[in-house]
Nucleic acid binder design. Structure first.
Length: 478
RNA sequence: CGGGGUGUGGCUCAGGUGGUAGAGCGCCACGUUAGGGACGUGGAGGCCGCAAGUUCAAGUCUUGUCACUCCGACCA
């Protein structure tokens, strides 16, 4: 009976992964649709996850010397058009403002799809001497891209993100910063989101509009599809030249500075859902769980039960955990299910019998384990469990990712793997765009990245058979 | 932007051949319950996505439009 109701609530991921995702988003109460297509309400449960991501990522940024700024949301058309590749990449998906109040504007402005051009316009006035460099800025904001197809967290027309924009005296320094921020992202994903990622470089076909090099972290979702989870770009001096940004160096000559940008978005929430979730709902890594421990009183009207629950809550909050007591008048079974759908890492059940025995029940969301614990030891147990769960979730996600990562030496093997399986396929590539195009056309597969950790799978390109240049992670992507 | 599907109380849906709207769940009140989505009684809630058209009459037929959703293309 209970099982039947659960099945009705959340479609199983084996049956229909897309529907499962939508069901989890709804049942975990993360967001809601609005009257504007592709724009969503972040409900408290969803926004709180974003706040935890922001807080912890921002702290990591600042350890590397990043300073936060805020630039306008409007970009005049003339500014957007200054860098040719950039405008070509973004023009098809920008939203335009053509009227101010009752008057038409003399120049239309787009709502930022990304802020490279605004930062360039700003740096032009800010940077004159080698003494002004580097600038290592970041902003937390939202951007707008008029997507045709939208999905909660994965692709919306307005989304929240952070965009770092830095400017340096030398190419070496810019490249070092580009890689440094990619490392920050990868480390954040693994340590905070318990999500393993592959670090690597994008092929020219997949790189950012206007970039010299794009680096990416690629994660694998439960259904074997890849999700680009963060990118870091090295622009070289291309933007500086387009925007005429120059500085006087120590040797008293004018030089073009080198720039980078790097971003992660609320898509990370989608990644958390699809990396960790199961058929009971969301599974949150403790470090980004708005509620880490939910205490569920059993027979809460019985003498002393609620008081005990509140006392445990106080003790755990004192220790620094995010804790709630579900003292609503729902039945315990309902509260258990609700707790699971919302992904709360630890559940504590306490009722009259427990209180009599001086114990409580602890249930782990990540692996379903349920065991008894003395009430006096609860705080210590939770303190031990939070990092354990965090680590176990990363291990489990890594094991699953590895089990969905394959190798292919020949075209037949490559095609067969994608026909029969879903995941990353490591295969060699000659470096030619034609092979990349052919692979995409015939298998609907794209190059995810050329990983930093190169392996030698074979001597020849998996597509054309010519000598191989790089090992590439291939996959179907979100 | 191309192809498919769906729009009827908050949610899931029922409403042959046109005749003025229903159920379950949820919600509210009261009571009984309580260790894996409890139960009883009573109650509130709908210009049937929107706009034209056909008709004495449209949830139902026609056209358009918008939204959601799935599959592609594009993208974080």
């Amino acid at each position: 009976m209970a099982d039947k109701k659960m099945v009705e609530a959340i479609t199983s991921m084996e049956e229909d992964f897309a529907q499962w995702y939508t069901d989890v988003v709804k049942k975990a109460d993360l967001c809601d649709y609005t009257s504007v297509k592709g724009c969503m309400v972040f409900k408290p449960a969803g926004y709180a996850i974003w706040e935890l991501i922001q807080k912890q990522m921002d702290a990591r940024f600042k350890e590397t010397g990043v300073e936060n700024v805020y630039l306008p949301m409007f970009i005049p058309e003339s500014l957007l058009e200054k860098e040719k590749d950039h405008v070509e990449g973004f023009a098809p998906e920008v939203a335009w403002v053509t009227q101010g109040g009752l008057q038409p504007l003399t120049e239309k402005m787009c709502v930022r799809p990304t802020s490279e051009t605004l930062f360039c316009d700003f740096y032009k006035n800010e940077v004159h001497s080698y003494r002004d460099l580097p600038k290592v800025y970041n902003q937390w904001c939202s951007v707008v891209r008029w997507e045709k197809e939208t999905r909660p967290f994965l692709r919306s027309r307005e989304f929240l993100w952070q965009e770092g924009h830095t400017i340096h005296a030398t190419a070496e320094e810019a490249e070092a910063r580009t890689i440094q921020m990619l490392d920050v992202y990868a480390d954040f994903c693994e340590q905070v989101l318990a999500m393993p990622v592959v670090k690597g470089r994008k092929t020219d076909k997949e790189k950012f509009a206007g970039a010299e090099a794009t680096y990416t972290i690629e994660a694998l979702m439960h259904d074997g599809k890849a999700l680009q989870s963060g990118t870091s770009h090295n622009f070289g001096d291309g933007f500086a030249k387009a925007f005429d940004i120059q500085y006087t160096d120590k040797d008293n000559t004018l030089k073009y500075p080198h720039q980078t940008s790097w971003g992660t978005t609320t898509r990370l929430i989608g990644a958390i859902i699809m990396v960790h979730g199961d058929n009971s709902g969301l599974k949150l890594p403790p470090l980004v769980a708005p509620t880490q421990v939910m205490i569920i009183p059993i027979r809460q009207n019985a003498d002393g039960v609620l008081d005990k629950a509140y006392a445990i809550r106080s003790e755990l909050i004192e220790k620094g955990f995010r804790v709630k007591v579900d003292d609503s008048d729902k039945s315990p079974g309902w509260k258990f299910a609700e707790c699971e759908m919302r992904g709360v890492p630890i559940r504590i059940e306490i009722g009259p019998k427990d209180i009599e025995n001086g114990t409580a029940i602890i249930a782990r969301r990540d692996n379903g384990e349920k065991f008894e614990c003395a009430i006096k030891d609860l705080a210590a147990k939770v303190e031990e469990l939070i990092p354990t769960i965090q680590k176990d979730m990363l291990d489990a996600a890594r094991a699953r990712r590895d089990s969905q990562t394959f190798e292919a030496k020949t075209w037949e093997e490559f095609k067969k793997t994608f026909d029969e399986k879903s995941g990353f396929v490591k295969a060699m590539w000659c470096g030619n765009r034609e092979c990349e195009d052919k692979i995409k056309e015939e298998l609907a597969v794209t190059s995810r990245c050329m990983p930093f950790k190169q392996e030698h799978i074979s001597d020849t390109c998996v597509c054309c058979g010519k000598p191989a240049a790089k090992m590439v992670y291939w996959g179907r992507a979100y």
